[in-house]
Amino acid sequence: MLAFIVTFTERFQLVSPKGLMNPFIRFVSELQEVSLLIWRAFVSLFSKPRYFSETIRQMDMIGVGSLPIVLLTGFFTGGVLVLQAFPTLQYYSIQNEAGHSVATSLIRELGPVLCALMVSGRIGAAISAELGSMVVSQQIDAMRALGTDPIRRLVVPRITSLVLLLPLLTVACDILGLIGGGVVASTIYNQDYHVFATSVRVGITTSDLVSGLIKPIFFGLIIGSVGCHKGLSTSGGTAGVGRSTTDAVVIASIWVIIFDFFLSKALQYLLDLGQL
């Protein structure tokens, strides 16, 4: 694929002598490497050895470790949604729909995306920094020299943990968001708590819940694979570790937001989420 692009760009003179297309070629090359990493990790799932204890350790770090920031993010996001939406809804005399409005926004969009962004910042950076440090201190080489495949030992447990736990963290984020919204509605706007709760219950549908659970699976895959790829391709000593960590967070966050758009469109079509 890369060879084809290089030939194509050379033939049609898309590359200047100074290499103006370098970022594009680099992007395609990195996309290819990440895809290969995901494929190798996927294939490794079906054969021994498997590192269950490492997977459990990663689940603890990713799941339990990220819970406080995810819960805080959810609570205050739910609160601010009600804070901003309530006056507008009141203007149109539909303030009783505040719960519905918050639940739809949170469960479909904000819960999965904000949770993924927070986890990307915390875990994506940690994965990249840890693997990058292992590369520059020759620990990855040592691992291979001792007969261990780093993909199986390091990449598979991290991606698996993220794919399994990001949906659960998203659920926790959604629940705290709804509680935050309820607290703001009842304390600041004096809305009866039961009215808010009923609006939430009536407003959300099974499709919303399914959509809100499918997105984090893909986001977990993105955060894990980008973090692992950036970490394992670290070069240039400790400065390189810093660069890889920054790249991992930035790239994973951008991909989460881009993917969210296309996933939303696909899920709208598949789950008939077009109408409120």
Binding site: Q139, D141, A142, M143, R144, D149
Partner: peptide, 22 residues
């Protein structure tokens, strides 16, 4: 990489800085 695993079992490697798992 898979075919190299049994070969690497025969070889011990001492790295420059030790390369111990921290």
């Amino acid at each position: 990489e898979v075919e190299m695993m049994p070969i690497r079992q025969k070889i011990g490697m001492v790295f420059q800085e030790g390369a111990l798992f921290d």
